[in-house]
């Protein structure tokens, strides 16, 4: 260890503390009961261990509505994320590896649309959806999540960089159809890019708040963020019954965070490489 890195390491330690504090607090607070939470003793240290009681309360509260929200979130993230990835990978490959009339004009349109603020479209999308009777259904959340112009851009760059034309030509000469060439030859080469886009789109669907908040009115269709938002409103407007609800909000937040953190940790070698391509052209 060279001494000149000491300053840099101290800086890293300070950054770690800052970025970990809220998560550490959440972890500690999840193990406290309502009494411990409000007792005013150290907020950043343990006080009794009630994690399993809290989890039990969480999963049974109001006929297990949290479990339902968790299931909804998984469904939306899976359907929206996988669907968006399939669509974007196909389109990115199409833009990168085929020359056809109108390609550049269409791609310019797609790039321009990266600048359109998607939340500005939520209200008109709501009105359009309600005209065809799709609001307050799972489709109102899943279908708009399929759109990601940025993912198409990322996949175009990735396909152009990682799939050599000669290889595609060779496959075609061997008599493989376009779809077979794509699945057998191009797709394996694009794997890190595909996993990056998959993670990005799963995260954005899992985290989405504005779209489901707008589209859904029955609480049994809510994903986790909207459900927990609802609990927060209830807890802060109702002080007496609120105390026990704060416990559920805290332990529910912990449960909502775990799946994505695990996904990012296990897949880190893929997405770290995949992100490099999008930012450096």
């Amino acid at each position: 260890m060279r001494p000149r890195h000491v300053g840099a390491k101290l800086l890293l330690l300070a950054l770690c503390c800052y970025f970990l504090v809220p998560v550490w607090w959440l972890l500690v607070a999840s193990t406290k009961n309502a009494e411990g939470l409000f007792s005013g003793s150290g907020a950043l240290w343990f006080n009794g261990f009630h994690l399993f009681e809290n989890l039990g309360d969480l999963f049974t509260f109001n006929n297990g509505e949290f479990v339902r929200w968790l299931g909804n979130s998984v469904l939306y993230a899976f359907a929206g994320g996988v669907g968006c990835t399939v669509i974007s990978v196909l389109a990115g490959y199409g833009f990168a590896k085929f020359t056809f009339r109108g390609r550049n004009a269409v791609f310019a349109l797609v790039l321009g649309s990266v600048m359109v603020p998607l939340t500005a479209l939520v209200i008109p999308t709501f009105v359009l959806m309600s005209n065809v009777g799709l609001t307050d259904t799972i489709w109102a959340v899943i279908l708009p999540s399929l759109l990601s112009p940025f993912a198409v851009y990322l996949m175009r760059v990735y396909a152009a960089a990682s799939v050599p034309d000669e290889l595609l030509d060779a496959a075609r000469i061997d008599g493989a159809g376009e779809l077979r060439t794509f699945v057998r030859v191009a797709l394996p080469l694009m794997r890190p890019g595909v996993i990056t886009v998959l993670l990005l789109s799963v995260v954005s669907t899992w985290n989405n708040f504005f779209l489901p908040l707008t589209m859904l009115s029955s609480s049994k269709l809510f994903p986790l963020p909207v459900g927990i938002g609802l609990w927060t409103q209830l807890a802060s407007s109702n002080n007496a019954g609120g105390q026990s609800l704060w416990n559920l909000i805290i332990v529910g937040s912990l449960v909502s965070i775990v799946p994505l953190v695990v996904a990012f940790l296990t897949l880190q070698k893929y997405w770290q490489g995949g992100l490099a391509v999008g930012s450096l052209k």
């Binding site: 970025f19 607090w25 950043l44 938002g229 805290i250 937040s253 965070i257 990012f264």
Partner: peptide
């Protein structure tokens, strides 16, 4: 990994956690 971690936390929950930390009744 730690610096990247908040990206995996839903925005709603990130806001809530800081809200708790700021609050007079639970926060440090």
């Amino acid at each position: 990994l730690v610096i990247f971690l908040p990206y995996a936390v839903p925005v709603v929950l990130g806001a809530l956690m800081w809200g708790f930390l700021y609050s007079a009744s639970f926060g440090p």
